[in-house]
Computed example of a mutant assay.
Amino acid sequence: MAKALIGYVGGPTSDQLRESARLRRRVADLETEVLRLKIENEGLLRTLAQRVDEVDELLEPVAH
């Protein structure tokens, strides 16, 4: 009986397999994009910190 039920229920259809593969590719693409944006954001934060330091150095003589 169990074999009959498993045979009846079957596995995923070819459409389901294609959709699953498409979704896995999309998730991988999005993970890559998130990593790229994190790296870009870190670079922007470093640049901002450098510019803030430069402005602070320019303002130091005025503060004294």
Rank of each mutant, 00 (worst) to 15 (best):
D53G: 11
A4V: 09
K3G: 11
L17N: 11
L37R: 10
E19K: 15
A21M: 08
E54L: 07
D53F: 08
L35V: 04
P61R: 02
G43S: 09
K38H: 13
T13M: 04
R18T: 14
Q50F: 12
G10Q: 04
R18P: 03
R25H: 12
L59T: 01
A63I: 08
L30P: 01
V9I: 13
G43I: 02
Q50V: 07
I6Q: 14
R46M: 13
P61L: 03
E54A: 12
P61E: 08
R46N: 14
E31Q: 09
D56Q: 14
R18C: 13
A4H: 08
R46V: 14
L45W: 00
G7V: 07
E60L: 12
V62N: 03
P12W: 01
T47S: 09
A4F: 04
L5A: 10
R25D: 15
T13K: 06
I6W: 03
E31S: 10
E31V: 05
I6A: 13
A28E: 13
K3T: 08
D53H: 12
E31L: 09
R51D: 02
G11S: 07
D29A: 15
I6S: 14
T32G: 08
L23P: 02
K3D: 11
L37A: 13
L48G: 03
R36W: 04
L30R: 09
I39P: 00
Q16L: 06
A28Y: 03
L44N: 14
V27M: 09
L58V: 06
V55G: 03
E60I: 02
P12H: 08
D29W: 04
V62M: 06
P61C: 02
D56S: 14
A63F: 01
V34L: 09
D56R: 13
T47I: 05
T47P: 02
S14V: 11
Y8G: 07
L17M: 13
L17P: 01
